[in-house]
Simulated scan of single mutants.
Amino acid sequence: MLQRKFDQVVKQHYPNAKDAKDTSIHYLGKMQNEHKLDISKVLMATSVCSDDINIPSTTFFNVLFGPFIMGGLGGIPFVGQTGMTAFAHHIPDEGSAFIFYGPHIGVTLDGDLGKMYRPRQEETGNSCGALMLALSRLQDSHYQPVLNENDYQQMKLEESLLPYREDIINSDNPQKAITEATYDIIDKKIHEYVKTCKNEFPVDKVALLGGIIINTDYGLDDYFDAKNFEIVDLKSL
């Protein structure tokens, strides 16, 4: 009953979102049946936020090798070209590569985005915490992120979001807007790193699935709003 209620709430904000576990099954089937990838030899990389709440979001983790973790705060692939190269070098012999990426956002039964009830906590907390912190700072027109080694990822995340600042703070739903902007940043970086590191891959094709993870309550299934699924032909890059 509670899951059905969440389904209605999620669809108000993300009408195309589907249960995250069903999403995993759907795209594993596409990779295997339509694109003839041997699922038993697929190495998975993720570029999702390091937030612990994202671990159970999909069943990809239970089926594929890996994951090779590319994402840090917000899901930005902080491993860069070196990390993408390392991922390429770890692919099984005669295997395949799959990258799952995107930011996450919480939702409550009241329809509040950017919030969720975490395990064994009575009050709601931010999700994504890094993005909601960035939002609170970017809403101050005088704020500028200053890079420092003690908070490098958060500062780089905020720096990456600066070009989207006005659109985010003027949006009807800034929490959703900053999440969408972060997806754009991650998507561009993943494509950039795949292209610049294409010669490091021992395979001709790389499967990509990008979108937004939508966190619900503890113990309930999360959702995934898929924005991009493609099989990148490395020879054509």
Rank of each mutant, 00 (worst) to 15 (best):
S96V: 03
M155F: 04
I214S: 02
G219V: 11
K198V: 09
V206N: 05
I53C: 12
G66H: 05
I169N: 02
V42D: 02
I69E: 10
F78R: 01
T59D: 14
L209Y: 11
K156A: 10
N170E: 08
T124I: 12
G66R: 05
K195I: 13
N33D: 15
S96H: 15
M44Q: 06
K18N: 07
M116S: 15
P77V: 00
Q81I: 08
G29Q: 11
S40T: 15
N62Q: 14
K189Q: 13
Q154M: 14
T179E: 01
F68N: 01
L109Y: 06
D19W: 04
Y14S: 07
E123C: 09
R4E: 13
D151V: 02
D184C: 11
M44Y: 04
K5C: 07
S160A: 15
M84I: 12
D225F: 06
L237W: 10
H191I: 06
T58I: 06
D217S: 13
P77W: 04
A181N: 03
Y164R: 02
N150A: 10
E149F: 09
F224A: 01
A45M: 07
P15Y: 06
I55M: 11
E94P: 00
K115A: 09
L28T: 03
T216W: 03
P174V: 07
K205W: 09
Y14T: 06
V194G: 01
V107Q: 01
V203M: 11
C49Q: 05
P145I: 09
R118C: 06
D52V: 10
Q32K: 13
N16M: 12
T85D: 07
Y193E: 04
K188E: 15
I105G: 04
Q3R: 08
L161W: 06
T82H: 09
Q144F: 12
E149R: 13
D225V: 06
E230P: 08
N215Y: 03
P163S: 07
S96F: 13
V146P: 06
H191A: 10
E166T: 11
G111E: 12
H104W: 01
T216A: 04
D51V: 03
E200N: 14
G80D: 07
D112G: 05
V9D: 05
H26Y: 09
D112R: 14
L161N: 00
I231A: 10
D51H: 03
S50G: 10
K188L: 12
L28H: 07
I186V: 08
H191L: 14
L37I: 14
N170G: 10
F229T: 08
D233H: 10
K205V: 12
M70N: 04
